[in-house]
Design a protein around this nucleic acid. Structure first.
Lengths: 229, 229
DNA sequence: CAGTCAGGCTACGGTTTTGTGACAGCACCC
DNA sequence: GGGTGCTGTCACAAAACCGTAGCCTGACTG
C-alpha cells in the first residue's frame, strides 16, 4: 500500500510542486491549505507522514504539530517541518515541536525524498521497505512479485494490494470495512462480502495443499495475516 | 566503471576493515579520517556513495551530510550513516536525516553490502555500463547493438531506448507514465497506450518462437524486464 | 437438537485492461 | 516524386479481473 502523505502548505506553487513530485515518487498525497484544514484531514484519514510548513495562516506549523501529537490517533504520525532559512534552526530545534525532522527551504526534491524515506523507515519499518518477508512468503513491492517457498505466485491487482496491506500489519485483525477502505479506497462502494471472495482467491493462490494458511479468519470480526512459522 | 565509495571513519581499525572488504567486493575506495577531509575529498572527486560515521572529530557526521547536500555537485550523492546503538535515540533521530540509509554498529559486511547495493540501485541504477547482459540478451550501448542468442536484433531508436531503460532496472515495474517520462522525455505528450504498442514491437523483435518473453506485463501497473533464465 | 448466522465457495455477466493489425504522417534518401 | 523506415493513434478482439448472488457447511445459541 502506498504511503499516504499529508502536505500542509498555503503557498500554491509549492503545494502543487510537492504534490506532483511526491505522487510521481509513489506516495498518495493530500494537500491542506492551512492548519485547521490539516487537522481535519488528518482526523478523517490518518496519514503515514505529515509535511508541514512552519509559516501558516490561522494555525502555525508548530501548533499543528502540537495538536497532532496531542491526539490519540495521530500521536505517532511522523512529521517533517519545512522552514525558511531565516526562521532558523536553533529556534526550531530548541522548541519542542515534536517534529521528527525539518528541512530548510530551498531544498531539492532528492533531499526531501531521502528524508521522507529515512523518517518513514525509522518510525514505521516496513512501510517504506521494498521487500516484505513473513515466514516463507516474500513480497517484492517494486518488482510486483510474490513468492512462497521458491514458487512464483500470481495475483491480480486487488489480491496483491490486499496481501500487501495485510502483511504490512501482521497479526492485526481488520474488519471488512477497514479492508475496503484501505485496499479498495474509501470512495468506492462495494459489498462487504466481496472481501471474503478476494480473501478466498488469495488463499487459493497462496496455499499449496499441506501448507499452513497464513490468513486467519476471526469470526464476526474480520481477517488477519499471521506471521508465525 | 567500478563505483567509487568514500569512507569517512576516524577509527583506524574499522576504516581499514571497510576499505579492505569494499575493495574486495569490487568498489574503488577512498578513506577520509575526519569531516573536513571528507568534504575536501568529495569535492575533488565526486564519489558514487559516501559511507560516514556518525561520531567524527572536528565536523560531525550530520554536518558532513548537510554540507554534502548543500553543495551542487554532491547534493545527490547517496549517503549511508554508521551509528552506534546508543546514538540511535531521539537526539539523533531529529537530525540524522539527509542520509539515505543508516546502519547500526556492529553490523555484518554482508548486511552493509546489501544496503550499499540497494542504495546504489535506487539512486543511480546501472552506473552507465557500456554493455548490459541479461540471460541470453546482450545490449551494447556504445555500438548500439542488441543480440539474443547469437542473432542480431534490429530495433528502432525508441525500442532501443525502451529496452535500454528496462534492462537498466531489471525486475522493477514501471508504469506507462514513468516509461514515457524516462524514454520519451518528460516534455513530450504522447498517449500512454503508445507504450503498449512499442512494448509489442519490442517483443516481436526480441522473441523467437519458443523463447521466453523477458518483458513481463503487470496488469494495471505496467511492465518490467525480468532477468531470470 | 433445531434454528440462526457467519464465512467458504462457485458460477457468471459485466467491465477494464492489454495485445495487435492497420493506417496516416513524417523525415530522409535516392 | 516515389521509396523506406519509424512513429503515434485508433479500433477491435482477446484476456484478465471484478463484484454479486446463491448455495452450502460448520459453528454457535438457547
Amino acid at each position: 500500500m502506498k504511503p499516504q502523505i499529508l502536505v500542509v502548505e498555503d503557498e500554491d506553487a509549492l503545494a502543487t510542486l510537492l504534490q506532483y513530485n511526491l505522487e510521481k515518487e509513489g506516495y498518495t498525497v493530500a494537500v491542506a491549505r492551512d492548519g485547521e484544514d490539516a487537522l481535519m484531514q488528518a482526523e478523517e484519514a490518518t496519514p503515514d507522514l505529515v509535511l508541514v510548513d512552519w509559516m501558516l495562516p490561522k494555525v502555525s506549523g508548530i501548533e499543528v504539530c502540537r495538536r497532532l501529537r496531542g491526539r490519540q490517533e495521530t500521536a505517532n504520525v511522523p512529521i517533517i517541518m519545512l522552514t525558511a532559512r531565516g526562521e532558523e534552526t536553533d529556534r526550531v530545534r530548541g522548541l519542542d515541536t515534536g517534529a521528527d525532522d525539518y528541512i530548510v527551504k530551498p531544498f531539492s526534491m532528492t533531499e526531501l525524498f531521502a528524508r521522507i524515506r529515512a523518517v518513514l523507515r525509522r518510525i514505521r519499518p516496513g512501510l517504506a521497505e521494498d521487500v516484505i518477508e513473513a515466514g516463507d512468503i516474500t513480497m517484492d513491492r517494486v518488482a510486483h512479485r510474490v513468492r512462497r517457498a521458491d514458487r512464483e505466485i500470481h495475483l491480480g491487482p486487488t489480491e496483491f494490494r490486499l496481501l500487501d496491506y495485510l502483511m504490512q500489519h501482521p497479526g492485526r485483525v481488520f474488519s471488512r470495512e477497514q479492508l475496503l477502505d484501505a485496499v479498495w479506497g474509501s470512495d468506492v462502494y462495494v459489498e462487504a462480502r466481496t472481501v471474503d471472495v478476494h480473501v478466498g482467491r488469495l488463499r487459493k493462490a497462496l496455499n499449496n495443499k499441506e501448507e499452513r494458511d497464513p490468513i486467519r479468519t476471526v469470526r464476526s470480526a474480520g481477517y488477519a495475516f499471521d506471521v508465525n512459522a
